[in-house]
């Protein structure tokens, strides 16, 4: 039967009508391309504005003054533009936060991926994720109104606004990020590698410390760098808890002003458009961008350099 039916039609005589499908294909390609282009142009636009206004700033204030002055007073009559005053605060708070987030995050990751029973894991993971969902303004108030008064009970010379509690709370905020990304890295260490260690008579701790952690180091470091970028760019906690007093140095007990806190101060309406103070905003923004950009480049390089390939 079937042989009769197909026998009448010569092979290749049936031409499919695909013109419409081809046209839709082209239109879809254009639409998707347009959306991709929007995000690229936005990035270029932001970068362009940053660069343009930064150049304008450096025409008024020399880059030498920017890098060498020791005070940050762009709104005062005697203007000084020592960016390191802001950078020192930003770096100090980021370092404090990493000192909190690295042990907390990494140990939680090891606990979750290697030690926790499925039941414990089911309870712990959502709690970590809740921590990541707390709004930063709540963290800021927590640092200012709970952590600082608590710390003052045994650190009497701690001031009301200070880098210490901002850094500590910021560390708690970025812990879920470190924990979650590090856990992914630990989890992707192949089962066969762990078996190899156990088969040589290694205990769980020896396996974790000598085999799993080194094998996951590229993922752990990149999670950490992402967390540092986040800490450097974080605004609300430091604005609320660390104060607005540009101080050069690394004293965590006194009020300081980070780059982000300065940007908040200016954009809150202190400087009219076109003034030097206004342009300062962009110079600080540019510095911030360069710092996180450098971190991202380093992370990218590190992952490529140290990632182990298993087939």
């Amino acid at each position: 039967m079937t042989a009769d039916v197909t026998g009448d039609i010569a092979p290749g005589s049936w031409n499919p009508k695909r013109d419409r499908a081809k046209m839709v294909q082209i239109i879809v390609k254009i639409i998707f391309g347009a959306f991709a282009a929007i995000s690229i142009f936005t990035t270029i636009g932001i970068l362009g504005t940053l660069i343009f206004e930064t150049i304008a700033f450096f025409q008024e204030v020399s880059i030498i003054r920017f890098l060498t002055e020791t005070r940050w007073t762009p709104l005062f009559a005697s203007k000084q533009f020592g960016i390191f005053v802001l950078i020192s605060a930003t770096v100090m708070i980021a370092v404090i936060s990493v000192l909190v987030a690295l042990p907390l995050g990494l140990l939680s990751a090891v606990c979750l991926s290697e030690y926790a029973t499925p039941r414990v894991r089911k309870i712990l993971k959502p709690i970590l994720e809740i921590l990541a969902g707390v709004p930063t303004v709540v963290y800021g108030y927590f640092a200012l109104l709970t952590v600082t008064p608590f710390l003052q009970t045994f650190l009497p010379n701690l001031q009301g606004f200070n880098a210490l509690s901002a850094g500590l709370v910021l560390g708690v905020m970025i812990t879920p990020l470190v924990a979650s990304l590090s856990e992914d890295a630990l989890y992707s260490v192949p089962r066969s590698l762990k078996d190899g260690a156990y088969a040589l008579g290694a205990t769980k701790r020896e396996t974790v410390v000598s085999v799993i952690l080194p094998a996951a180091v590229s993922g752990i470091v990149s999670s950490l760098i992402l967390a540092i970028s986040r800490a450097v760019g974080e605004t609300m906690i430091v604005t609320l808890a660390a104060g607005a007093n540009p101080t050069l140095g690394f004293n965590p007990f006194v009020p300081v002003m980070t780059m982000t806190a300065f940007i908040v101060q200016i954009t809150a309406g202190d400087a009219p458009h076109g003034t030097t103070a206004y342009k300062t905003l962009f110079a600080v923004g540019m510095t911030l961008f360069l710092m996180t950009f450098a971190l991202n480049i380093f992370s990218f390089w590190f992952v490529r350099r140290f990632r182990e390939k298993y087939d």
């Binding site: 590698l193 040589l200 008579g201 290694a202 205990t203 000598s210 080194p214 094998a215």
Partner: peptide, 29 residues
């Protein structure tokens, strides 16, 4: 027990360490 009963697996699974450290790992621990 596993120190006295060694095992070689289906897929070669050297540690992502140097050849030297692969050998000394078990001895060290």
């Amino acid at each position: 027990l596993r120190r006295r009963v060694g095992m070689v697996f289906q897929k070669p699974n050297p540690f992502p360490k140097s050849i030297y450290d692969n050998i000394t790992f078990g001895a060290k621990i």
